[in-house]
Design a protein around this nucleic acid. Structure first.
Lengths: 121, 121
DNA sequence: CAGGATCCAATCGGATACTG
DNA sequence: CAGTATCCGATTGGATCCTG
């Protein structure tokens, strides 16, 4: 990962970059989190839960996640149509690491609120 | 994390958002990675190692990381001046989780290269 | 050397209107 | 319902020039 590839390049050669590229987009983690905690959901439910996201943005992120194989899109051509999104098995492989990340975040948020232990090494 | 705050809002209430906000900027992980593997470094070294990053961008990211308490900036007002960046103890708290993330990334990259096991659940 | 300041093109992303 | 298409203002981030 030492160098190489500008952040917007085509083929990331660094694993960290490769995987963060999947998670970095706006709202991405909200989507993953919601699908995980509330299970498979329809487009509208997701949009309602993730307050503030636009349809355009949500669609875009869902497509990207689908393209990366992290979520699955199930289309039922009823009238009206019903589209359900869910985590794939690959998507679930992130569960553990995302939990740990969230744990660190939680700890830091708590530390920052209680300004007692504020120092930067 | 259920909803709340647009991605660019002020005060994140979700731990995941809180921490990803620190890591999500362009080049951020490259900086952390380099500081970790090559130890404390000067601005110029970082810039040289992270190919393609502009001085403006690098400065901006370094300031952000410093503001979040992940890296420390040491300024020696010699002529010419010498500025050294290093990971703080808080910055090092990410070591484990970033390693795991990189591990998942490595696995997936390998899987994707060998197109045998391609399926989305 | 390590940036700060400025200018500018490109991209992003919301709002709105329309459709199978 | 679950999008797509279009328009358009707001940001982003590189390039360039300048300084303690």
């Amino acid at each position: 990962m030492d160098a190489i590839a500008p952040q917007s390049a085509e083929r990331p050669s660094c694993p960290m970059d490769f995987i963060l590229r999947m998670l970095m987009g706006p709202w991405t983690t909200y989507i993953l989190y919601n699908l995980r905690t509330h299970g498979p959901q329809r487009f509208g439910e997701l949009k309602r839960r993730i307050t503030g996201v636009s349809a355009k943005m949500l669609t875009e992120r869902l497509r990207a996640l689908e393209g990366h194989g992290l979520i699955a899109r199930r289309y039922e051509r009823t009238i009206p149509p019903k589209v359900t999104y869910s985590l794939t098995t690959r998507g679930h492989e992130l569960d553990d690491v995302l939990d740990r990340l969230a744990a660190v975040g939680t700890r830091w948020m708590a530390e920052d609120d209680r300004p007692t232990a504020r120092a930067a090494e």
